[in-house]
Design a protein around this nucleic acid. Structure first.
Lengths: 189, 189
DNA sequence: CCTCAAAACTAACAATTGTTAGTTAGTTAA
DNA sequence: TTAACTAACTAACAATTGTTAGTTTTGAGG
């Protein structure tokens, strides 16, 4: 484990508060308080509140886009790719449950990096959609509206951050497997 | 159609802004601006900003709890009940896509009514969970961790508000049917 | 012990926040 | 015409916001 810089600590603490209350409802004084220092002292380490949000969201969004790129270009069945996407989400969310809240709910408060974020998200969704469409074309996946499938699976994966912390006992692999069963094979016997 | 009171108009406009930016990032002046009046004038119709949030969230939460109660006590198979829950979400979300954003993301900013809201939500989830467990016991539903199934289905249904406005062409019934297929029967051929 | 940089501090700022008080214009009912 | 009511207004408030300037404390290396 590398040492955590004060800057990283600020971002980490902030992401916890942002998950609880949302970016706009958390003040610099709240963050400073949690660290036992004064708000003004934060500015020795970070440039602005906005920069904290950027740090949290952009690194996560890039992780997803990079992971998706790998899966998309891999030599695998389309169902196999979907299973690997599920694992990607479980993995990233397990390692940063707090940041995932900002990624989902506070992205609209990004300023300079908003367009960049939106592009990353669009790329990600396009790849996801193309995997589903390929799966339908190849007969791996049922012929239902692919938008409904994309939406349904992605909604579940994006909400993982709300749920993983409550089920700490569940192993990452077990969770990814169960989710794969439920999302891909359905729940009907 | 009944006439909309000024108060209802305020709550409706506010819910649109709350969906875009979140409760904390929307000011009384923003809401007033959208109505073409001054912020102070809002107080002729409402008691506080907090009351607007209460209005939006609590009525929706009560709709869900009441709808669930009906379904739970109905004479139907457990899979049938799940399908009716899907229809309940599609129906309520279609009729109030903006309010659903606050229900999902701004409930933590409720003050006096926070406990009441949390109780409604717990009741709802308990009923949902019991339907799934009954379905497993009766052999209608596969024997996978019921928490994973509850989480997966509910996440999708709770995210509908993000997605329904983009697919206005899709009829309520078609959407509920497709969602039922995907969520219950899975997507694998 | 001294130096120097990192990281804390105090004090203050201009802007914005939700809300109140008091007033005014427009509509309805007597 | 008058009286009452509704819903807008202006002006202001105290508190809180993100941030800056300038200063002091701390701790490691020479």
């Amino acid at each position: 484990m590398k040492e955590e810089t004060r800057r990283q600590e600020i971002v980490r603490i902030a992401s916890v508060l942002f998950k609880e209350r949302g970016y706009s409802a958390v003040t610099m004084r709240d963050i400073a308080n949690e660290l036992g220092i004064k708000a003004a002292s934060l500015y020795n380490h970070i440039k602005s509140k906005q920069e904290i949000l950027h740090d949290i969201i952009i690194s996560l969004a890039e992780d997803f886009t990079a992971g998706m790129e790998l899966i998309f270009n891999a030599n695998d069945s389309n169902i196999g790719k979907l299973q690997r996407i599920i694992e990607l989400h479980v993995h990233i969310t397990t390692n940063n449950q707090y940041g995932m809240a900002s990624l989902n709910n506070d992205w609209m408060h990004l300023e300079e990096s908003l367009d960049y974020y939106l592009n990353l998200r669009t790329d990600y969704e396009d790849n996801f959609r193309n995997i589903i469409k390929s799966g339908i074309a190849s007969g791996e996946i049922i012929n239902v509206n692919p938008e409904v499938m994309l939406f349904s699976i992605l909604s579940t994966l994006r909400s993982l951050y709300l749920w993983i912390p409550k089920k700490e006992d569940l192993l990452q692999d077990t969770l990814a497997n169960d989710l794969g069963d439920v999302l891909l094979k359905g729940i009907t016997l």
